[in-house]
Design a protein around this nucleic acid. Structure first.
Lengths: 188, 188
DNA sequence: CTAGTATGCCTAGAGGTATTAGGCAAACGA
DNA sequence: TCGTTTGCCTAATACCTCTAGGCATACTAG
């Protein structure tokens, strides 16, 4: 009996690919075992349970996404940075829908702190440096950006825009509009 | 043997309530049967399958949400309309998280057309009448509003904002910012 | 090199969910 | 009142999750 050479890392990687193929909600321990040609029970020496597997995929996806956003952001400021951040975000979601869905998993306090989630927040704030918003407003602006990016991308990948035409063009205009809003941030 | 008096309508209603309690993703045929004190199989004379049940909940939720938004929108224009629409939307999602999640279900062409989804689109466009945007830009603006509302609300209900303080205040500021963006809509 | 240990994957099995087929009895319509 | 419809049931299959316990393979130390 040759061993399949399973490790938590290989399982997580394969799970991420599987999630992209069949959707994060259809990521199943059984399907993953099948992909490695082993029995379901064999996976439980490497992962605690199905939820643990999902969390691992989520953490990995958050890290990958943060890396891409960081690369896109390098050396840019102001609207350039906004567009680059948003583009990297949207591209990742389109290329890896399962992983992107995984990033919406609610992580417990500890896991979240150890994940790339803080980097995301930090990078979003970095965009705002080009817009000179006073501190109390920054939090609101971060929430606006986060919400709009996530909302657009999730509606697009969930099919709510029903493969309508002009989604790329609308995305540009949405970013233009956000840029306008940030440059003319309304006083409280 | 007294009959439980099941109908598709009663099942859908109970399913919506159940979804609000346990989350839409945990809405299960078994749990619903348990709630009525009948066997799982008994539900299949009323609903086609689990997916059918979810679709019914989605359609009902879309209709309820459309009604609330319509009521909030009545007699308002401009920023007032924007704030009223957004408020009704967010309040519904907070009051009925399971139903709100259901509204994100992807419906097939036919079901979508017969649902309240077109009313949603229509009402979103109605908001823009106060902002005098030329037609090609309206579609982009509708997508901006839809994305931002959905993004904020879904991050909030999914816990991504981790019960952070100031979510009500941020929501107001986000709406202010959208109002600014719409009033100063950038030329292509 | 070999003995002992740790580890990887297996079998077995319990329990939950989805779904189909077929049956009996209550409600209803003629 | 008798037949038909309809509502809910039992039975059975299939898939998924997860635990317990076993054996053989790979590693490690003497």
């Amino acid at each position: 009996m040759a061993r399949a050479g399973l490790t938590a890392e290989r399982l997580t990687q394969a799970a991420a690919e599987l999630a992209d193929e069949v959707g994060f909600e259809n990521l199943t321990v059984s399907a993953l075992a099948r992909r490695f040609g082993v029995k379901d029970a064999s996976l439980y020496s490497h992962i605690r349970n199905a939820q643990d597997l999902r969390v691992r995929v989520a953490v990995q996806a958050l890290a990958e996404l943060a890396d891409r956003v960081a690369a896109a952001l390098a050396g840019r400021a102001g609207k350039d940075a906004l567009v680059a951040f948003a583009g990297a975000y949207r591209d990742y979601a389109k290329a890896h829908p399962g992983r992107y869905a995984a990033t919406q998993t609610e992580l417990d306090q500890e896991t979240a702190a150890a994940s790339a989630a803080p980097r995301h927040a930090e990078m979003t704030r970095a965009i705002l440096r080009g817009y000179e918003l006073p501190e109390p407003d920054q939090t609101d602006a971060v929430r606006l950006l986060h919400s709009t990016f996530h909302g657009y991308v999730s509606l697009e990948t969930a099919g709510a825009f029903r493969r309508a035409p002009g989604l790329d063009a609308s995305w540009s205009r949405v970013l233009d509009a956000l840029d306008v809003a940030l440059r003319n941030w309304p006083p409280a």
